[in-house]
């Protein structure tokens, strides 16, 4: 397990060198998108997101934002559960050339396959650590669809500095989530004294 600093725009070689279990510190552009935005990205294919997302990191996050003099400030901005975006993410990776998906809880086989095929990784941030993570947002560059989607569902464009996360799905096709699920399933069977499913 290595500790790596990565910077957007992320290139394919860097992404393919990351391995499950690596701790990363991400700097650069982090664009939030959650349930409503994913449906929108796949169904409406908005053009404005293309230049923003190419080589960037997409963040499953619905932040608490505060308007201050001179712009917006991220107050509380931890990850939300990623698996809800499983039906959309493979298409998003392919269409927008996103190199990193940041969220929590991990994703499924379609996303893992898209990571392998197009050169992307899944980065797991610490769920609930919303203030510490918001403090890594050094600047809120812009926001899209705020009126339409509301604060949590809007697409916020964050500039982050040393945002901490763990690689739990890599571009070589490994998933820490699949590993841990399998291992803990064996423990469950041991505790119950029978084969389950």
């Amino acid at each position: 397990m290595a500790v790596r600093e990565i910077q957007t725009p992320l290139d394919e070689t860097t992404i393919r060198s990351l391995r499950v279990g690596d701790e990363v510190f991400l700097s650069g552009l982090l664009v939030t998108a959650r349930d409503v935005a994913h449906k929108y990205m796949v169904e409406k294919k908005p053009a404005f997101l293309r230049p923003l997302l190419r080589g960037a990191a997409l963040y499953h996050c619905g932040p608490v934002m505060r308007k201050e003099r001179g712009g917006w400030k991220a107050v509380s901005a931890g990850p939300t559960t990623s698996i809800r975006e499983e039906p959309y993410t493979a298409d998003v990776i392919q269409a927008y050339r996103v190199r990193a998906i940041v969220g929590k809880g991990g994703m499924g086989p379609r996303t893992l396959e898209a990571c392998r095929r197009f050169g992307a990784v899944y980065l797991h941030a610490v769920g609930g650590a919303a203030v510490t993570l918001a403090q890594r947002v050094v600047h809120v560059r812009e926001v899209h669809m705020l009126e339409e989607f509301g604060m949590p569902e809007a697409c916020w464009v964050f500039e982050v500095d040393n945002f901490p996360a763990v690689v739990t799905m890599d571009a070589a096709g490994s998933s820490l989530h699949a590993e841990i699920t399998a291992r803990s399933h064996m423990a469950l069977e041991r505790f119950l004294g029978r084969a389950i499913r």
């Binding site: 509380s76 609930g128 993570l133 763990v166």
Partner: peptide, 26 residues
């Protein structure tokens, strides 16, 4: 990674308390 995660959680707890910010955005 487990040790790092818990460390960040405890940092976050302190930061939220200090700044009166929601410790989780949800």
């Amino acid at each position: 990674a487990a040790h790092s995660a818990l460390t960040i959680i405890l940092q976050n707890t302190a930061a939220a308390r200090e700044t009166s910010a929601p410790l989780c955005q949800d």
